[in-house]
């Protein structure tokens, strides 16, 4: 059984959520939390631990299989840990960007974005269907490169633990040097926003440098109030609806689509439709930019 940092972090998560609740109450941030929303977030989090327990062995087996394919083995040298962590974060960036750009991956990831609230409990809206969505494939290159599967899984867990604290509105900005390198509450609020200018931005896990490097970074603008959630807000606290609605949407769309478009409803961007009756993030941004241009003329 590989070392799982998330299991050890759960009591800390609970303590920090209680602390944020108290702080929000004290500062009068009455809309920071909503009790049913929190219940849904935590229930999804609990369900995700069961899903992870059920499929974690399969993910580990895939990594062990990939590790054995090439005669490369880095072993457990101390220097391999930071290197593995940084490369795993790059793999996370690739996974996360794909999770927003390919509907099959999005179906698994969407529940993380389904809350219109943004607080520490939102962080626990983790996927139940990550294995079905093939999320593990993004970490196979690390195993092929010779990193130990146990080390990769531990780094992935540490990455997830890091991302917990950035789901908050209580922290406005970190010191400038920190904001320049690390993913922060400010950067991640942008990622959870549905404001047109912010869609599909800031995919980073731990290091924001990947977004700056690959052109997907957007800074938070204090003048533009952030609206959280997804483009088509669910309007539901129903746990099963939140977790599975996009998978059902794929089934429905594939069933109804003409034969030559069926696969496109699986691998194209969320919001794509063969008759242009819906909008992808790019289309929404283009519409917003066009309307902004009109206003400024």
């Amino acid at each position: 059984m590989p070392f799982d940092p998330v299991a050890y972090a759960i009591p800390v998560f609970v303590a920090l959520i209680v602390a944020e609740l108290m702080w929000s109450r004290k500062t009068g941030a009455g809309h920071a939390y909503e009790w049913r929303d929190t219940g849904t977030s935590l229930a999804i989090g609990l369900g995700s631990t069961i899903a992870a327990a059920a499929t974690g062995g399969l993910t580990a087996a895939m990594l062990v299989w990939a590790h054995g394919l090439l005669p490369l083995s880095i072993g457990w040298a101390w220097w391999a840990w930071p290197l593995c962590f940084v490369l795993d974060d790059l793999a996370y960036y690739a996974f996360h960007r794909s999770a927003h750009r390919v509907r099959w991956f999005w179906a698994s990831h969407v529940n993380h974005h389904s809350s219109q609230n943004y607080n520490l409990s939102t962080a626990l809206r983790q996927s139940w269907t990550g294995f079905i969505a093939l999320s593990f494939i993004f970490r196979l290159p690390l195993a092929l490169a010779g990193f130990e599967p146990g080390m990769i899984l531990a780094c992935a867990g540490l990455n997830l633990v890091y991302q917990f604290w950035i789901h908050t509105e209580t922290v406005k900005r970190m010191p400038r040097w920190f904001e320049a390198v690390m993913n922060t509450p400010s950067h991640h609020r942008v990622h959870h926003a549905v404001n047109a200018r912010y869609l599909d931005r800031n995919f980073a896990g731990t290091f924001i440098i990947w977004d700056k490097l690959f052109g997907t970074f957007a800074p938070e603008d204090d003048e533009d109030r952030i609206r959280y959630g997804i483009v088509s807000q669910l309007g539901s606290f129903n746990l099963l609806h939140v977790v599975f609605h996009e998978w059902l949407g794929i089934v429905r769309d594939v069933w109804r689509a003409p034969w030559r478009h069926k696969l496109s409803y699986i691998w194209r961007a969320p919001g794509w439709s063969h008759d242009d009756s819906r909008e992808t993030s790019e289309m929404i941004r283009a519409r917003w930019e066009a309307s902004r241009g009109k206003r400024h003329r």
């Binding site: 299991a7 759960i10 609970v14 959520i17 209680v18 609740l21 108290m22 929000s24 109450r25 009455g30 809309h31 920071a32 939390y33 909503e34 009790w35 929190t38 219940g39 935590l42 229930a43 989090g45 609990l46 631990t49 069961i50 327990a53 409990s121």
Partner: peptide, 27 residues
């Protein structure tokens, strides 16, 4: 150990939701 972890987490979920309600986050 797995069951203890699960039941402990479930208890924490219930307590946090109750706390959220009692603190007035239901406007």
């Amino acid at each position: 150990g797995v069951w203890v972890q699960f039941l402990g987490s479930l208890l924490a979920v219930v307590l946090i939701v109750l706390l959220t309600w009692f603190l007035g986050f239901r406007t």
